[in-house]
Nucleic acid binder design. Sequence first.
DNA 1: ATAAAATACGGTGGAGAACCGGGATATACT
DNA 2: AGTATATCCCGGTTCTCCACCGTATTTTAT
Lengths: 144, 144
Amino acid sequence: MELSCKSEYALLALLELADHYSSNEPLQIRQIAAEQNIPDRYLEQLLATLRRSGLIRSQRGAKGGYVLAREPWKITLSEIVSSIEGTDTHSSEYREAKSLEGMVIREVWQEAGQAAIAVLQKYTLQDLMEKRNSRQQLDLMYYI
Amino acid sequence: MELSCKSEYALLALLELADHYSSNEPLQIRQIAAEQNIPDRYLEQLLATLRRSGLIRSQRGAKGGYVLAREPWKITLSEIVSSIEGTDTHSSEYREAKSLEGMVIREVWQEAGQAAIAVLQKYTLQDLMEKRNSRQQLDLMYYI
DNA sequence: ATAAAATACGGTGGAGAACCGGGATATACT
DNA sequence: AGTATATCCCGGTTCTCCACCGTATTTTAT
């Protein structure tokens, strides 16, 4: 439903890491932030979250930076979003419903949420890259 | 994804109105709030939003209150939620993406959102009532 | 007229989003 | 060994929205 700035930043950053995945060299926060127009001090926090979730690995010190922990086709968008968005402690699922109506509502809501997650599960970082690349191809065709 | 307190309150209130729909008598805020344990001054705002969306009708003055604008089987959950949640002025759809990556991300996100909305569209207030009633039946069976 | 209801307007406290800074820590290179 | 370069960790700030409360004003049935 709501695409928060947080999730979009994280996706953009991981997409950037996916682009440089074959080079086997770590990317620094500064580079990612500059490339995708993301405030670097904020991106730092997001990358920390993604690292704790095991989606990326970090190397400290000079020549350090971040790399994907897995291949781009093994990381689904659902993992990314739940890593970033799933840190809030008391979500709607945890505060339980007291009435029968409340339970029924939550069931339907959960079904809707699952439908959305299913979509995010079928897309990987690789898929996004290919989607973007074919789009770029199209823009080029129109330009010529 | 996130079931806000707002949407749940609105659904509970409309469910209450649906229960009394056949009586053709308006329900007051106080009654709904007391029945569903909703703070009445807050519910008042939500009902105002639902009225402006044309989902309920209000009658002012003594013996006044609220009634559904349509039959319970003609009101989908998607209408209710989008009425309540869709009031925020600058959502993610309105701040446009500048990069190619951003556009691709938004497309996937929109696909996920549509999947969730599709679920909410296939349920009506009537469906929720029946779901709850059959659940109550089950509880009774276990009790005996 | 009077009481009962919605309506309009304003305000408060808390939480999370979206940032910014400073210092501690780890690492490569010379 | 020393220094530059990076992450990491601890804060704080501003802003917006949520959830909620109070006080009036307007409308309507009796």
